[in-house]
């Protein structure tokens, strides 16, 4: 390996626990390969911190393939870093320049309490799912494909919504820390399809009430969520979610 390496300065949010005051610490990330992912770069920094007897930087990650929704931090003011439609684990260091200073902060929202450093508690999103993001009717065995007609548009919208990995970047990027995009995706992926259609009214009410209860803000259409979403979920799902809610308000179900 004789390729060029990079030297970076990291300003990382360090916070020992949920109720402790946090602060930025500066670290040198030296001899970083441009082929490393952002998280691998943090791994290297952590190894060196451990060797020096210091506490490593806590951050979440799991699949490191961009599909699990576990990783995420705000890098230079952008949730998941500088690339659009990309999770932080899929951002490689070649997208930074040698000598850069990189500011790394956790996803900030009152509904996402900081556990430690860059790790935040996103169980508020799980509770929104628990409130109604499922199907409880028995749908039986898989029917013959043509027996349940689904329009092309509905199928595509459901699939687009289902691309949400629940990472919380929409909340992190929203100036109001609103979970509207997440909640919308989870409501619409079910509402558009026949199996989810049955409970759609109850679901919309229950999930949106839970969203409010968790202390997320409201949507003021800054479109920051759409820009931050690693899966390209569109604000038009929020429009669809509102429509679901208003129909549910006047529904007898």
């Amino acid at each position: 390996m004789s390729e060029k390496t990079m030297n970076l300065t990291l300003k990382v949010w360090r916070q020992e626990g949920p109720h402790v005051k946090g602060r930025f610490e500066t670290y040198a990330a030296e001899n970083i390969s441009p082929d490393m992912s952002f998280l691998e770069m943090l791994d290297v920094v952590n190894t060196r911190l451990e060797q020096a007897g210091e506490e490593p930087i806590a951050f979440d990650s799991d699949c490191r393939e961009g599909i699990c929704g576990t990783c995420g931090a705000v890098v230079n003011g952008r949730a998941h870093g500088p690339l659009s439609a990309t999770t932080l684990c899929q951002v490689h260091m070649r997208h930074f320049n040698d000598g850069d200073t990189i500011v790394i902060e956790p996803f900030r929202a009152e509904a996402f309490p900081i556990v430690k450093d860059l790790v935040v508690d996103r169980s508020a999103l799980d509770r929104i799912i628990s409130a109604g993001g499922y199907i409880s009717v028995r749908t039986g065995e898989a029917p013959e494909a043509h027996a349940v007609p689904v329009s092309k548009r509905a199928a595509e919208e459901a699939m687009d919504a289902a691309a949400c990995i629940g990472c919380g970047a929409c909340v992190a990027a929203c100036p109001n820390a609103s979970a509207s995009l997440f909640t919308a995706a989870k409501i619409i992926q079910l509402a558009k399809l026949p199996q989810g259609n049955i409970e759609r009214r109850r679901r919309a009410i229950a999930m949106i009430q839970q969203m409010d209860k968790e202390g997320f803000g409201s949507c003021s259409k800054h479109y920051q969520c759409e820009a931050a979403c690693p899966k390209g979920i569109k604000v038009s799902f929020i429009t669809a979610m509102k429509s679901e809610y208003f129909k549910a308000l006047v529904s007898k179900d």
Binding site: K11, F24, E105, R108, A109, E110, P175, F216, G217
Partner: peptide, 10 residues
């Protein structure tokens, strides 16, 4: 909305 994002980003 302000309560939801009490902590601002740097």
């Amino acid at each position: 909305n302000r309560q939801a994002r009490a902590n601002r980003y740097a």
